[in-house]
């Protein structure tokens, strides 16, 4: 047998380890969830996942996550832009603040957010006179999900913005492009893939978020109850199969959405000419 020489040795070993690791941490627990649902009959399964209260929670979870991820794309891009393009006093501190939502225990975040955004909290009291209630409403859910998703967009876009060569922008300007044209014709296509990745990460994180949301959501059935809470509730009632059934639906929807986002990214990369080289 001829041995194929490679400059990167250990392909089999490292692939084997990666698969083992993925199996232990991700694949086996997830398939266990699937297996558990097989203890239900099809009718029981359908009943647990399509109850009106559960369906309302899907809408809230996926809807709020989507809105939060979109908000994060806009303001995350802005934050990344400010952090890479300008020099100012305190920049390093702001840069460190971005990671706060990563580091903070989610329960702490949830309690602080609900305290601040409740009708007599610092920010909530400002909205109260205009008739907007933030805490204990779906709006509060969006606030919490925006909070925990912010670092994803900033941290994926920031390195790409830093790597953009100033020369390309100068070239565009010398060819007569104004600031706005330079942004949407030159900069935006370059950061677009990173932006989608950041969006997907923030979205995925928001779908699964539990700790920071339950405090500010108020958890009113049909109104501000998120799917992870439904699962917890079912678990507390020892309805393990019902809990995993809902979990499986969430998993499938999340997987489908992430797959869609990846496909969109692949398609736009081709269209915008991000070639493999």
């Amino acid at each position: 047998m001829k041995r194929k020489a490679s400059v990167l040795p250990g392909f089999k070993l490292s692939l084997g380890f990666a698969i083992l690791y993925l199996s232990l941490v991700v694949l086996i627990p997830l398939s266990a969830a699937f297996l558990k649902t097989f203890t239900l009959t099809w009718a029981e399964f359908w009943q647990s996942v399509s109850a009106p209260r559960v369906v309302a929670s899907y809408k809230l979870t996926f809807g709020a996550s989507l809105i939060a991820a979109i908000i994060n794309v806009v303001f995350g891009l802005l934050t990344a832009w400010v952090l890479t393009r300008y020099r100012f006093f305190g920049k390093k501190i702001i840069d460190a603040f971005v990671d706060f939502p990563f580091a903070l225990p989610t329960a702490v975040a949830g309690i602080s957010l609900s305290a601040i955004y409740s009708t007599n909290g610092w920010i909530g009291s400002l909205f109260e006179p205009v008739g907007i209630k933030v805490a204990y409403t779906p709006l509060g859910v969006v606030v919490a999900l925006t909070f925990i998703g912010l670092p994803f967009v900033v941290r994926t876009v920031q390195p790409v913005l830093e790597d953009l060569s100033a020369e390309v922008e100068e070239a565009a300007a010398s060819l007569g492009a104004n600031r706005w044209q330079v942004f949407y014709k030159i900069i935006f296509p370059a950061i677009w893939p990173a932006l989608i990745t950041g969006f997907a990460l923030a979205f995925a994180r928001a779908i699964g978020e539990y700790g920071s949301v339950i405090f500010i959501a108020g958890n009113m059935p049909m109104v501000s109850e998120i799917t992870p809470l439904i699962i917890i509730t079912k678990l507390e009632q020892y309805d393990y199969a019902g809990a995993t059934a809902v979990a499986v639906v969430m998993l499938v929807i999340s997987f489908a959405l992430l797959f869609l986002i990846n496909a969109l990214q692949w398609w736009s990369n081709r269209r915008l000419g991000h070639t493999a080289s």
Binding site: V168, A171, A172, S174, A177, A190, T275
Partner: peptide, 18 residues
């Protein structure tokens, strides 16, 4: 720059790769 009507050629080309 954009009002000067100059053509500028960079050492590392600065082509728009997309």
């Amino acid at each position: 720059v954009r009002e000067r009507q100059v053509g500028f050629v960079f050492q590392h080309y600065a082509l728009f790769r997309h």
